[in-house]
Computed example of a mutant assay.
Amino acid sequence: MQANVLIIGSLNMDLVAQAERLPRAGETLLGQSFATVPGGKGANQAVAAARLGGQVAMIGCVGADAYGQALRQALVDEGIDCQGVREAEDVATGIAMIVVDASSQNAIVIVAGGNGQLESTDIERFDSLLQAADVVVCQLEIPYPVVAFALQRAHEAGKTVILNPAPVTGPLPSQWLGWIDYLIPNETEAQAMTGLAVNSAAEAEQAASLLREAGAGKIIVTLGERGVLFADGVQSRHSPGRKVQAVDTTAAGDTFVGGFAAALARGLDESQAITFGQAAAALSVTRAGAQPSIPTLAQVEQVLS
């Protein structure tokens, strides 16, 4: 299989509880429902790219357990090349414990498990997947040295390189920025990287300017219902969000990133790819769950027609 999008990242089983509100410290709440749902930022973005028109491969690591088998099978069922998803012995598959409240906001705790066992040698072993890709996408739910290796290798191979810096807690290593074609943080991640509050398009533009000064190229700040801010040093453009009734925002950012990557790989220009990613993300928040909420290419094209 020739993949035109390669995702290097995390696979988690999401343990999702619905409650009227998020619990306070030390508080026990009565929940309304519970489900186990395939997730992880890497896997979510791989599913999004596959459903939204990309030929997709993934490199990642799960534990040798039932959750790992289920996550891998979920990707295979989407037509994703999973030869690069390794099973690690003596470690559990990564999990995310997610509480979603009545207003669709969520709180998440992640345990890395197998994701923390991914190594640069895994990327070297499956270099053919990287060479076959047009677009390479990374996140930060795997070890930083592996992310750095992947970004540099993809850049040197002439690929379009996307980094979704989630979950970031501070400035990125400066040497990474020159390897990244599109840096795609949300408001919280942009704030963590710059120290600036990001609660509006204007504040996102200020954060993007700081990231540009630090060496970043093209920046796309996702702002949820407020839309997307694009900046490349030549122009800064705000694309308003689509008005929808949100049910669960869990995978909205991943859907945008996967949709944007797939659109670039299919030959759309960056402005068209942003519009496409926004439409896909808007559809995703109208449905519950991470991967179950991600729409198909046909569904997004119908919205855009």
Rank of each mutant, 00 (worst) to 15 (best):
residue 278 Q to I: 15
residue 122 D to R: 10
residue 163 L to Y: 05
residue 291 Q to P: 01
residue 26 G to V: 13
residue 77 D to Y: 02
residue 285 V to N: 04
residue 58 M to E: 02
residue 254 D to L: 10
residue 241 G to E: 07
residue 142 I to V: 15
residue 123 I to C: 13
residue 90 D to R: 15
residue 51 R to G: 07
residue 149 F to W: 12
residue 110 I to A: 04
residue 168 V to Y: 05
residue 91 V to S: 02
residue 179 W to C: 12
residue 117 Q to E: 11
residue 115 N to G: 09
residue 132 A to T: 07
residue 122 D to W: 10
residue 303 V to L: 15
residue 29 L to D: 06
residue 32 Q to C: 07
residue 125 R to E: 15
residue 292 P to M: 09
residue 5 V to A: 04
residue 81 D to C: 14
residue 122 D to K: 09
residue 137 V to K: 00
residue 146 V to I: 12
residue 118 L to Y: 11
residue 235 Q to R: 15
residue 93 T to Y: 01
residue 198 V to D: 01
residue 15 L to T: 06
residue 93 T to V: 11
residue 131 Q to C: 11
residue 294 I to K: 00
residue 226 R to T: 13
residue 214 A to L: 10
residue 221 V to H: 13
residue 37 V to P: 00
residue 250 T to E: 00
residue 10 S to M: 10
residue 226 R to I: 08
residue 135 V to I: 13
residue 20 E to A: 15
residue 281 A to G: 05
residue 51 R to I: 08
residue 268 L to Q: 14
residue 48 A to H: 08
residue 98 I to Q: 01
residue 105 Q to S: 14
residue 17 A to T: 09
residue 130 L to Q: 09
residue 284 S to L: 08
residue 76 V to C: 04
residue 25 A to T: 14
residue 174 S to P: 11
residue 166 A to C: 13
residue 278 Q to K: 13
residue 189 E to I: 14
residue 228 V to T: 14
residue 66 A to T: 14
residue 73 Q to L: 14
residue 96 A to Y: 07
residue 135 V to Q: 02
residue 202 A to W: 01
residue 27 E to A: 10
residue 182 Y to K: 06
residue 98 I to R: 00
residue 6 L to I: 10
residue 52 L to R: 11
